[in-house]
Simulated scan of single mutants.
Amino acid sequence: MKLTTMSKVGGVLAASVLALTACGVSNEGGNSGGGGDETAAGGGSEVDWSDCTPGEESADTSSMEADSDTDITIGAFDGWDESFAAAHLYKYLLEQDGYTADVQSFQAGPGYTGLAEGDIDVILDGWLPLTHADYLEQYSEDIEAHGCWYDNAKLTLAVNEDSPAQSIADLAEMGDEYGNRIVGIEAGAGLTKTTEESAIPTYGLEDYEFIVSSTPAMLSELKKATDSGDNILVTLWRPHWAYDAFPVRDLEDPEGAMGEAELIYNFTRSGFSDDHPKAGQLLKNLVIDDEALSSLENVMFSEENYNGEDLDGAVEEWAGDNAEFFENWKSGSMAG
């Protein structure tokens, strides 16, 4: 997310997301199944963006010669935590190998435009096959894909780890366990729309009070409930640092009411592979699972850690505890 606009919750934690923009789009559960300018109704590209295995084009970079051009500009999307997490993670690895890397923030539209025009070298946060399909329809011939690195980007209903419900289908008979409440986020978020228009009617949850509030308020209630041992039902999404910060788990969604998981891709400007063969291969090697991503984001964005400030320092600290992650990345051995 944009590192300069983190919201504090009761002086205890920070929201990891920006306030909703005028068009109702942000990383506040709006990446998938949403209804804003960055959300496409379907993919127009001939490429099947749903067909990708993270790290499938991995290769060992240890014997590769260093790139002669070592200056790389990385774009990250305002309001999207995982965008800055991946960008600064890649920056850290590049700088360890003698590159000069610069992370710049953009809204998604200008980011893809800058990539297609060659003003940005790399974007590591392409959500497909749905969310960014319109951008790929427009720019796919002017950019290069370098594989996907995450395959579980989705909207969820989540509960505290030790609560009784295992599936959203259980909730209709368990209202008393959760105070007959679903704690949601902003009114304009795609997650809110999907919960209200799909999950609630699909699973017969009309007797629940759906509290439309804000991401900071939801996270505050989640922290309060898990600290006190109370049951709670919230709207959430992956990736998010809450999965590392709190004892929380997703409910199964047998009817698929919250939508399918999306993939997160790496894209570069045209010609990047020719100019930066080693850096390009490192993009193809990247794989981040839920545990690693949520722990990284927790260090970077929660108030108990770096609170969205000094993201390079946060990644350096995380790297100190996860040296094997980087060795596997360079060797191309992260793929499942």
Rank of each mutant, 00 (worst) to 15 (best):
K2D: 15
K2H: 13
K2R: 13
T4S: 14
K8N: 12
G10L: 11
L13P: 00
A14G: 10
A14F: 10
A15S: 15
A15E: 09
S16F: 11
V17S: 07
C23P: 07
G29W: 06
N31S: 13
S32F: 02
S32Y: 05
G33K: 01
A40V: 13
A40P: 14
A41D: 11
G44L: 12
E46T: 15
D48R: 06
E56G: 09
E57W: 08
E57V: 02
S58T: 11
T61V: 06
S62V: 11
D69A: 06
D71V: 05
I72R: 00
G75V: 08
F77Y: 10
F77C: 00
D78C: 08
W80M: 10
W80Y: 13
W80V: 15
S83C: 04
F84A: 00
A87S: 06
H88F: 05
L89Y: 02
L94E: 00
G98I: 01
A101S: 04
V103M: 01
F106N: 04
F106W: 06
Q107Y: 11
Q107L: 11
G109C: 02
P110C: 09
P110F: 11
T113G: 08
D119R: 15
D119F: 12
I120C: 01
V122K: 01
V122A: 00
D125Y: 14
G126K: 06
L130W: 15
L130M: 13
D134W: 12
L136T: 13
D142P: 06
D142Q: 15
I143L: 11
H146C: 12
C148I: 06
D151G: 14
V159L: 03
E161L: 08
S163L: 07
P164G: 05
A165G: 01
Q166I: 02
A169Q: 06
L171M: 05
M174E: 08
G175N: 07
G175F: 00
G175T: 05
E177I: 02
Y178H: 01
G179K: 04
I182E: 05
I185D: 10
E186Y: 12
E186L: 06
A187E: 08
T192F: 07
K193D: 05
E196I: 09
E196C: 02
E196A: 11
E197W: 05
S198T: 13
S198P: 05
T202Q: 07
Y203R: 02
G204D: 12
E206M: 05
Y208L: 04
I211P: 04
V212S: 03
V212N: 07
S214R: 05
P216D: 10
A217E: 13
M218A: 15
E221P: 09
K223W: 13
A225P: 04
A225K: 06
S228F: 14
S228R: 14
G229V: 08
D230W: 12
N231P: 09
N231A: 15
V234D: 00
W237T: 09
H240V: 08
Y243W: 12
F246D: 08
P247M: 15
L251M: 12
L263T: 09
N266H: 15
F267Y: 14
F267D: 01
F272N: 03
S273F: 14
D274R: 00
P277D: 03
K278R: 13
N285S: 08
S295R: 01
V299C: 10
E303A: 11
E304T: 12
D310K: 02
L311N: 03
E316C: 03
E316Y: 01
D321P: 06
A323D: 15
E324K: 14
K330P: 00
S333F: 07
A335N: 10
